[in-house]
């Protein structure tokens, strides 16, 4: 079970964290803010992998819960407090709560039907954001004040500071995802993917395992949403569109489903291709570039980016796409 999520080498992880933390010292303000948004999106993709790869429930709803977190943080910022920790807590709770309410019915389905139900959830959240006036409707939520870390503290305005906050939330969320995946619950989640019948045979309810996984993943996506708002101070319904949900799911496959860290890298590749490579060098052709990346990945990286390094292992790859 440890092997499925990839082996963590403490020194390597520490080096990676140091490099990520040093980004604001190395790059200009625009790339830093792009990096911060990548971290928020990557955390959504990690939450998508927790369901898709680890539990075998391919989902298109995570961007919706991300939106719940993002809008909640924005509303808290406008109407209550600019404290980022409060915003993180409220956004995470709100997304987790909605994941509970929607998950109660959604996780009764499986495979492609579950995929379509989650598509409906994501689209319905998107439409709510697009219609409700107190969320800014199609104009998006504007006028969110810069966040602070403690009462009376300096607002975080510089890209470097909001980046660090996003990095903190990302590392927090990733750690939770790893801990869950390696816990006894994570073992049950893998059992849901591999053999739900056997899991039932040993007396566990697959329904409860699937629901709990759904709530945790929703809450993590909500946390990612608050990190997004802390940087952009603006949430648009377009951030929750179907195309973003599709990219989140494809990032999981591109990165290597079930490995958690692979999908985070997949998210970075997708985001950089769309918002840096296409925006700067091939204006208007983001779809072409992303399409080429996806097609190449299917044939050159059959186990995703994570599988490239792990390909010498003998155990077969898992994607949990059984319908």
């Amino acid at each position: 079970m440890t092997r499925r999520t990839g082996r963590l080498r403490p020194a390597g992880v520490l080096l990676l964290v140091v490099i990520l933390a040093a980004v604001p010292f190395l790059l200009a303000s625009y790339p830093v803010s792009l990096g911060g948004r990548i971290l928020a999106f990557a955390l959504v993709v990690v939450s998508t992998d927790l369901l898709t790869g680890v539990t075998g429930m391919p989902t298109l709803a995570q961007v919706g819960y991300f939106g719940v977190g993002a809008y909640s943080a924005g509303l808290v910022g406008i109407h209550w407090t600019d404290n980022l920790i409060v915003q993180l807590a409220v956004g995470t709770l709100a997304a987790g709560l909605l994941a509970l309410v929607t998950g109660v019915v959604a996780v009764r389905t499986a495979g492609i039907v579950f995929l379509m139900v989650t598509l409906a959830i994501g689209e319905l959240i998107h439409q709510v954001a697009d219609r409700l006036d107190f969320l800014g409707a199609s104009n998006g939520l504007v006028g969110i004040p810069a966040g602070t870390l403690y009462p009376g503290g300096e607002p975080l305005i510089l890209a470097g500071y909001t980046y660090w906050w996003a990095l903190l939330v990302f590392l927090l969320g990733l750690t939770v995802a790893y801990v869950v995946a390696k816990s006894p619950l994570g073992l049950s989640m893998r059992a849901v993917r591999e053999s739900p019948t056997r899991l039932r045979a040993v007396g566990q309810s697959t329904y409860v395992v699937r629901l709990v996984a759904f709530i945790i993943a929703g809450a993590i996506a909500g946390a990612a949403g608050t990190a997004w708002t802390a940087q952009t101070r603006f949430v648009s319904p377009g951030d929750l569109a179907f195309s973003v949900s599709a990219l989140a799911l494809l990032s999981v496959v591109l990165g290597g489903a079930g490995t958690l860290w692979g999908p985070a890298i997949g998210a970075a590749v997708v985001f950089l291709t769309r918002d840096w490579l296409a925006a700067n060098y091939f204006t208007g052709h983001a779809d072409l570039l992303l399409g080429i990346v996806f097609v190449l990945a299917v044939f050159l990286l059959p186990r995703g980016i994570a599988g490239y390094q792990l390909s010498r292992r003998s155990d077969p790859p898992h994607s949990g796409a059984a319908a």
Binding site: T52, P58, I112, A246, L249, L250, V252, V253, L254, A257, H285, D287, L288, L290, G291, I292, V293, F294, V295, A297, V298, P302, S319, G320, A321, A322, A323
Partner: peptide
């Protein structure tokens, strides 16, 4: 040659994005 649904999705949506752009 691609039997896994998720990789099918990645492949066919990738093709769709390329073709749509063209």
């Amino acid at each position: 040659g691609v039997s896994d649904h998720l990789r099918q999705a990645l492949l066919t949506l990738g093709i769709a994005m390329i073709a749509g752009d063209v």
